[in-house]
Simulated assay, not measured.
Amino acid sequence: MILLTFSLLPLSTFSSEKEVLQTIQSLGSQLKKELKSSMRKSPVNAIETCHIQAPKISSELSTKDLKIGRVSFKNRNPDNKPKDWMISYMEDFHIKKIKSPYLVVQIDSKTKGLIKPIVTAPLCLTCHGENISTPIQHKIKKLYPNDKATGYKIGQIRGFFWATYKE
């Protein structure tokens, strides 16, 4: 009898920046699709959608070896505050010291981190701008009593998509 043994790499191992960027892109596009659909009904509805869908989509796209999400210094969701490894890089993006579209860093011997700025677009101003309608303000206050994610202008960095992944 011949015994054959072999080992497969887990399918959840992310070894390339390209795969990680594609997953982050998927998070952004899925969330944008959900928000645009909700905005057609009402901007107030879109806040509820974002509240529910953003963490859900991030969780669905994350795996054992890849975690993704969103983060900001001026976060709306308190769960989206920066992790220690992100802070100096986020600051560097804000002062335009980093000009690349994203940054990959070595977190430890087996883990890399990636951050990619979220730039404020016109649609974002409805809920993240300087002149937010009263009904939207009330809904934000209800869902996010400690919201800091307002006052943005078009083109400003509003936050970051992030990922940690095993090499």
Rank of each mutant, 00 (worst) to 15 (best):
K74V: 08
K83N: 13
L61F: 00
D79K: 14
H94V: 09
H94M: 11
K74N: 15
N77W: 12
L103V: 00
P55K: 02
K96I: 13
G113I: 03
K64W: 08
M90A: 01
K112I: 05
E60D: 06
I115L: 13
I98R: 08
W85Q: 05
P78Y: 15
N77Y: 15
S59P: 04
K112A: 09
S100A: 13
S59L: 11
Y89L: 11
L61I: 05
K116I: 00
L66V: 02
C124R: 02
S59Y: 14
L125N: 00
T63G: 02
S109R: 06
K96V: 11
N75P: 10
T120K: 06
V104C: 04
I115N: 04
I57Q: 01
H94W: 03
K110N: 13
K97L: 11
E60H: 10
E60I: 09
V105M: 07
T63M: 01
D92E: 12
K110Q: 12
A121G: 02
P82R: 06
T126L: 12
Q106C: 11
K99C: 05
S59D: 00
P78A: 15
A121V: 08
K110C: 03
P78H: 14
C124H: 04
K96W: 08
T111C: 02
K116D: 03
G69M: 01
L125P: 04
K83Y: 09
I57D: 03
V105P: 09
P82H: 08
S100M: 12
L66R: 04
S59E: 10
V71M: 13
P122Y: 05
S109V: 12
V105E: 14
A121T: 03
R76L: 15
K99M: 11
N75T: 14
E60K: 08
S72R: 04
S88W: 08
K74M: 13
I115G: 00
C124Q: 09
L114T: 05
S58K: 00
S109Y: 03
I87T: 15
E91D: 14
D84C: 01
A121R: 10
D108Q: 03
S109P: 03
C124M: 13
V119N: 03
D92R: 13
K74H: 13
S72D: 09
K97R: 11
I118R: 00
L103K: 08
A121Y: 08
D65L: 02
N77D: 15
I95H: 08
N75M: 13
S62N: 06
P122N: 07
I115D: 04
I107A: 04
D84W: 03
R76S: 14
W85C: 01
